[in-house]
Structures are given as structure tokens and as C-alpha cells.
Nucleic acid binder design. Structure first.
Lengths: 193, 193, 193, 193
DNA sequence: AAATAAGCGAGACGGTACGTCGGGTCTTTAA
DNA sequence: TTAAAGACCCGACGTACCGTCTCGCTTATTT
């Protein structure tokens, strides 16, 4: 096994330039068209410098995406859980409707054939968001707004899964306006009252 | 411009061999590792023969997948919509838990960067299933089992979206046993009663 | 083992362009500075096409050199062996004093670390010349001009070895004018008479 | 421009370790496979320390070779010049038939594309030997054993050139046993008596 | 003895070229 | 007239070393 390089010696300027170049290229040319070679050239960096710190272009772009979007802290809390979810869903739809969404989709695509990337994508990107929402939902449960017998982890999945799924399959265009209605369906159920 | 080839002249033996080889290779080596070259070699066919009839390896594999799974006709109808959904969900989970699931995930992956493939995947694979379920749900609405004010197309998405999503992101392993519970959450809603 | 490609299918235009480009680059930039990549680019050819037919840049350049110098047939035969050798030695010195000499030296250099190339260089380039000279010397032996108890193969080596050696080591510049004298030393020996 | 480093400050331990490692690696893996990086690693030394004192791997190995073989003083002098040459030729063949020969050949190879190295190789390795032999031959001339009208420098070349040449081209394996015969050819000439 | 300068091990850096893979196109051969 | 076989051009891969460049850490004077 190759000796792992020492992260302390990492050149800050190069590191930044790589992340910036990666994101810019992905936004400009589309995730699939980006190559490690092009990132290196755009960042004014040797290819080896990229391979020293990341195993693949996907890993670079994932870090770049995380670096750009910053630490997640966007769970709204107005006391009205339905409204909060609707607003958040709108936010997801809007955020992922831009170039960042295309990048995210590219990462998910690569993750299908790359378990290590799948794990990173989960741990570094999805889970923080899911965790934050579990906390918010726990609070709503405590406030009596939501059923106590449903694991909040499952709730997160039921609430946001369909959105992510539609982004990936593109069954229908996503409309940020009707999130309120959809949240209503989920909270009140599909059965007649 | 080259004249479009006449599909009638398509060599049946080659066609079969290609589809079979594609699926076998995908199952054995994983979707991402399959190449057009390998399919051609395994099928005892020239590369050109593949490119004459399909635009990409993904298109071949999609047709092979459709060919293998056959026309969809699997919506159960016992009169109890909750039970039917639960059974179907189990079926999806089980089917996509095998090698076919890996192939499906690979197709979704490629579709992220290939709009034509995305369209084919939707039209040839997903939509027939969705349509069949819309019909079943329409019937349940008529029977008073489900709300009439929710488009059944939306229902399908809320019911199955989270499953497909979890398959793609791999947040948690899918357990076919608790589908009943999850259907209950969706039908009765996440609010306390 | 990789299946050997079929030489009959070799593209003549590419083949020519590769040999021409190789020799031109070697003459212009010096043997050591030539790269397979540059040859491919200059020939308007894919790198793979070079690697399909030759194992290394050295092999390409050796063939190009042979192709350029053509079949060897330059042994003079005036009936006077001493004069013939002197003329030939001059020819060698002059030929290898040009760009071709630099290329030849580069090939010998690479051959030091590449036994396969060494063998090719011997068989395809040196041996035909040596053989032709052995024949000429055999004739001189028969004519009583040279000792019969010395293998002509050895004679060739004693006659031309020092020239090739000096080209490689560069001990002193080679002067085509004093070849007659040197031949005299070899034919009459270094002992006083 | 960087000030030239002061050789007095050179770390003796490192210097030794570099020369030893260089020679060992060259003997073990073959001259061509040795890299500066590998020498540095094997010597437990920073790459820069090598580049501070030598311009290339070839220069290191040349010094290592000289260091190992020590100052040349091996010209035999029994009074019989023919026998002395034959013995010396045997010595050359034997010495260069070992790993040292491979290293010498590697140096000659690199020298083809590196005039500075060529000069060093000549001055530091070949010339001392040639000079010593010129002295020996001068003595033989004075003793009437050799012609006085042939420059001894030329004699050295005629005597040893073919051996070095054969080592580099590998036309035939070198046999230390028949040196006497070959010396006879050179001393008495190739003409019939 | 402290200050100071150099050499030093370590190893990251920008580069160049390597030899390989596979994409999608084009050509040849044989049925 | 098809299609197998496979060569072709091309772009990117991930690797190996090059020679240069910082980093702290010895050492070895030089005050």
C-alpha cells in the first residue's frame, strides 16, 4: 500500500484552486464532461497533486460542493412543522434546480458504481441534512404535531425521498409552488377522512 | 449521410446474442465495468453491429433488461389497497435487491448525463409501471379507499419514490418485511390522530 | 497474452507517416528528445496505432532508419582490398557523422537497456553490413590478399570496431582522411617489420 | 542564481550512502531501472541532497563506479608486450562481463544524449586507462617491440576498441580465452606473410 | 554559550510522457 | 449485401520520475 501523504503539508493555494476549478468546470461543461486532466490544467496544478489527495474526480467535486454550500444549518423552525417542511422542500427544489443540482446528480450517478464514493456522499453530504431534519422532527413529535410511533428517520425519507427521486429520474418537472399540498398529503395521509 | 438501416434486416441471432451477452456481463462484472467492446466480443458480433442498432451500451442494457423482465403486469388487486401496495413494495425491493437492481441503478446513473437515455428509461421502464399503478389507485379511489383529491400520479410517487431513492443513495438497507408499516404511515399520515 | 494484430491489415498511409515523422523529429530534435506522443501527433495518428505495431519509440526509429537507408549494398570491390576498406571506412565515418549518426547512437544507447531492441539492431542493421563485408573479405582471402587463418568475422570487427567505438565514446573526432593509414596499420600489423 | 554549495560542508555519511546505494541498485535492478528517487530512498537521503552535488543519476553512478574500482593502475609489464596486452584484454573482458560492465554500458548509453556526461566518462574513466596504456606502449616502442611510426594513442584504440564495441553491440559473446590470438592478428597484421 | 547559517531528511509541487483503455468510425474479407 | 473482425483517431486514464521548492531539524562554525 502506498504511504498516505501527510495532509499538514498540503499546499493551501493548490487545494483552493483545485476545488474552485472543479466546481467551475462542472457548472460550465456539465459534471460528466469534467476530467481530472481539465481540473488540473484549470487550476494550474499537476495531475498528481489531485491524485495525491483525492481518489477520483467525483471525490474532488464532492468536496468542492461541500466547500461551496458550507456547513448545513438550514432547517427552519417556526413552530409550524408543516410550513417548515414545505419551505425546506421548496429550498431543496430550488437549490437542486440550479447547476448545483446537476452536479449532485452527477455525484449520485458515479456513486452507483463506486461504493467508497457512495459512502462519502452519504456521510459528508446527505446525512448532515437528514440528521438536522430528524432533530427538527423530534421536536415536532414532542410538541404533539407528529405521530410518536413513526421513527423520524423514516419520516425524513418519506418527506424528501420523492423529491430527490424525481430529480434523479425526471418523471415530471419539480414545481416549488405545490410543496404545501404535497406536505399535506404526507401529514394527513392518503386515506379519506 | 448514411441511410438509416432497415430494422427488418436485423439479424435475429445477433440481436439475441447481444442482449443476452449484455445482461450476463452486467450481472457478472457490474454495470459500470461493461463495455461495448466486451459485449460485442461475448456475443461474437462486430462492434459496428451494436452501434448500428443502439446508440450506447446503456441503450443495449436497457433493452436487455426490458426483454428479460418482460411486459409489466404485476399490480396485485385483492381489493385491499394497503395490502396490495405493501406486497408490491416488497416485490420492488426484492427484484431490485438482486443483480437486476444493480443494472437498474447503472442505467439511472448513465441517464444523469444522457437525456435521451433518461427519456427511454422513463418511457420504456418506469412509466408502464407507474401507469399500471395509477389505474390500480384510481380503482381504490373509486372504491373510497383513498382520497379523491390527490392525483394518483402523485400518490405513486409518494408511495414508491422513497424506495427507489433509498436504492440509489443507499442510506439504509431496504427491508421487505416492514413495508406494511410504511404503507400505513403513508395512508394514515404522519400526524397524530 | 495479447493477440498479435494482423500485419496485412496495417494501414499503409499511417505506416509511412509514422516512419517519416519519426525520422524527421529525430533529425530535428535529437534522438533522446523524441517521444512516441510527438511522433503520433506529427504523423496525424493515434498513439495506439504506434503501439500496435512497435514496442517502443526505438523500434519505430530503427525501422525508419532502415527504411531510409534502404537495403545495404555498399561494399566496394575494386580488387584492392586495402583501398576498398579505406573507402568504406570513410563512408561509415561520413554517414554516421550526419544526423543519421546521432540517431544510430541513440539506438545503441537504448539497446543497452533493452535486449529485444539490441537484437533487432543487430539483426536488422549491423549484421547485413557485417555479412556483406565478410563476403568481400572472403574474396580477398581467396585472392591471397589477406591471411587465411583469421576468421573474416573477426577481421570485420577489428577493422570497423574501433570506428564505431570512437563514435560512441567520442574519444577523438573521426577524420575520414586518414583511413588509409589506419587500414595499413591493421593489415600490416603493429610490429616493426 | 543560487550560490554553489560548499563541498567542504558535505555530509560524509550521506555521500558514502549515496554512492553505495547507487551502485547496489544499479547492480541489482540494472542501470536503466535506477532512479534518483530510488537512490535517495535507499540511501536514506533527501533527493535534493543528490541534486546538490551531482547533475544526474549518471553522474552519481559514474562517481560510484570510479569510487568502487579505485584508481587505475593495472597495466601489466612483463617485458612481453603481446602477452601483456592479452592479459589486459582478458581483464577488461572479465571486469566488464560482471555487473560493472552493465553499469558501464548504461553510462555510455546515457552519454549519447548528454555531452557533459560523455566528457566526464571520458576524462574520469576512459582516459586514465588509455593514458596508462599509451605509456606502456611507448615503452614497447622504445624496446623495438612495436612500430615507431604508429601513434600509441591510435594503437590503444585499435587494440581495445573492438572489445568495447562488442560489449556495446553484443555482436558475439566475448571470450577471454582467445585474446592471445586476437592480439597476434593485430600485432602481425591481417596480410599473409 | 549563543547566534547563525548551511546542509539535511522529507516529501509536496508543476510538469512531461508513459503505456492502456475504450469510445465511436471506417475498411477489409468472407459468406 | 451483410456483418465479423479489427484497425483507425482520439481523449482520458492513473502512474512514474523529473528537477524544484518549501518545511523544520540538526550541526558546526563564528562571534
Amino acid at each position: 500500500m502506498a504511504p498516505a501523504p501527510n495532509p499538514d503539508l498540503r499546499n493551501q493555494r493548490s487545494h483552493r484552486a483545485i476545488l474552485d476549478a472543479a466546481l467551475e468546470l462542472a457548472a460550465r461543461d456539465g459534471y460528466a464532461k469534467v476530467t481530472v486532466e481539465a481540473i488540473a490544467a484549470a487550476a494550474g496544478v499537476g495531475k498528481q497533486t489531485i491524485y495525491r489527495w483525492w481518489p477520483s474526480k467525483a471525490a474532488v467535486i464532492l468536496e468542492a460542493l461541500n466547500d461551496r454550500t458550507g456547513p448545513f444549518s438550514g432547517v427552519p423552525d417556526t413552530g409550524d412543522i408543516a410550513a417548515d417542511i414545505a419551505v425546506a422542500a421548496q429550498g431543496v427544489i430550488e437549490a437542486l434546480g440550479t447547476g448545483l443540482g446537476t452536479i449532485w446528480r452527477g455525484l449520485v450517478a458515479d456513486a452507483q458504481g463506486d461504493p467508497r464514493l457512495a459512502e462519502s456522499l452519504l456521510n459528508d453530504f446527505m446525512e448532515p441534512r437528514n440528521k438536522a431534519w430528524q432533530d427538527r422532527l423530534d421536536k415536532a413529535v414532542a410538541a404533539g404535531e407528529l405521530r410518536a410511533d413513526v421513527p423520524t428517520r423514516t419520516m425524513v425519507e418519506l418527506l424528501f425521498g420523492p423529491i430527490y427521486y424525481r430529480l434523479l429520474l425526471g418523471t415530471d418537472p419539480l414545481d416549488p409552488d405545490n410543496t404545501t399540498t404535497r406536505v399535506d398529503y404526507l401529514l394527513n395521509g392518503l386515506r379519506p377522512h
